[in-house]
């Protein structure tokens, strides 16, 4: 217990305290009353059933993108490609929607989801194979491929997929109802939430018990040692990159079908990068990702509400995300230095 407090509890508490302070300083510097604005943000994030449901709506893609980052992250791979994988997943899922005849029922929905996962997998496979075959750093390729994924969506919805019924608006035709996941209690919260939490639990089990989890642990600790024991680093790395891509791809089709109703530009409000932040804050622990993505989603939807009610631009939540990341990186390191200098 004591070890847990000093290794996890204390840094986390100090990080939260430091981030609150940083947030207060930020609001003061843009001329807003700090304490009132922070209190407002909490109300806007979870204060009533509507705010709560909007926060949950944003939790889903963030959680999926965080899981997509954490899966290769378990092996020490730093993939920042969830944004691109999300977009390509949405493209593949939408493609199935466009070719399916009317009312295809549950089978149609499954086909759409599988296609989305395949699309995401493809965008995880490319950086994965470049990594294991040529040793090209996956961080750079995934970051660059994000731009490609976003542009592919634009190319399609401004081009061949634009539905003439939209009167010039660049978007595909709407998803028919039976190809959309069911919603909860008349809100915009959809069954993707259950799927995301299910994936998190499944990954937790995979990463903490069984042979596979030990193989990953050995390979992430020391690749050479693992390979002497006959473990295949290249295969494991490629598999994890693909799995991560599949999860992000699902997030993409959830957004396109359930939230936006069609494929159109502005599919993702930077969920990929936010997911990376959440994965990092959660130390790539799938079960930690669930609550942390909810908190960060609250931060973002509070930022949206502040724009509406307090005329503070929504970009403020991007700044706060960056500051949260910086704080979370700084605090544990500084604690370690302090302890090193003054004994324990």
């Amino acid at each position: 217990m004591k070890a847990w407090i000093s290794s996890v509890g204390a840094p986390t508490a100090l990080t939260c305290a430091a981030f609150t302070l940083v947030t207060a300083v930020f609001f003061i510097s843009i001329g807003q009353p700090a304490i009132k604005t922070i209190a407002d943000m909490m109300v806007f994030a979870v204060g009533d059933s509507y705010s709560l449901s909007e926060t949950l709506v944003k939790t889903i893609p963030i959680m999926m993108c965080a899981l997509a980052t954490a899966i290769p992250g378990r092996l020490g791979l730093i993939s920042v490609g969830a944004e691109g994988q999300l977009h390509v997943g949405a493209i593949f899922g939408t493609a199935v929607m466009l070719v399916l005849p009317e009312s295809f029922g549950l089978l149609g929905l499954c086909l759409v989801l599988v296609a989305a996962a395949i699309g995401g997998t493809l965008f995880g496979f490319i950086p994965g194979v470049l990594r294991v075959r040529l040793g090209i750093n996956e961080t750079i390729t995934t970051l660059v491929m994000n731009y490609i994924g976003v542009l592919f969506v634009s190319a399609l919805v401004y081009g061949p997929w634009r539905d003439p019924a939209n009167q010039g608006w660049p978007a595909t035709k709407s998803f028919p109802e039976d190809l959309i996941l069911p919603f909860f209690f008349g809100t915009r919260v959809h069954a993707g939430l259950v799927i995301a939490i299910g994936i998190a639990v499944l990954l937790h089990l995979q990463f903490h018990r069984g042979t596979w989890s030990r193989q990953i642990k050995v390979l992430s600790g020391n690749r050479k040692v693992g390979e002497t024991f006959g473990l295949n680093y290249a295969f494991t790395a490629l598999l994890l990159m693909c799995l991560g891509g599949a999860v992000a791809g699902l997030a993409g089709i959830f957004e396109a079908s359930a939230i936006q109703g069609r494929l159109q530009p502005g599919l993702s409000a930077g969920f990929g990068l936010t997911g990376f932040l959440v994965a990092w804050l959660s130390r790539h622990e799938p079960l930690m990702i669930v609550p942390v993505s909810f908190l960060v989603a609250g931060l973002i939807s509070a930022g949206d509400a502040l724009q509406l009610f307090a005329k503070i631009p929504a970009a403020s939540s991007t700044i706060l995300q960056g500051l949260l990341f910086a704080t979370a990186l700084a605090v544990p390191g500084l604690i370690k230095r302090y302890r090193g200098r003054y004994g324990n």
Binding site: T318, F325, A326, L329, K336
Partner: peptide, 24 residues
């Protein structure tokens, strides 16, 4: 350098701050 944070994560934090500040 001071907090010995992971360089890639730190760089992305700087990137997010830069994107947020300039959009704001």
């Amino acid at each position: 350098l001071a907090a010995r944070a992971n360089q890639i994560a730190s760089g992305l934090a700087v990137m997010i701050i830069g994107i947020g500040l300039t959009s704001y």
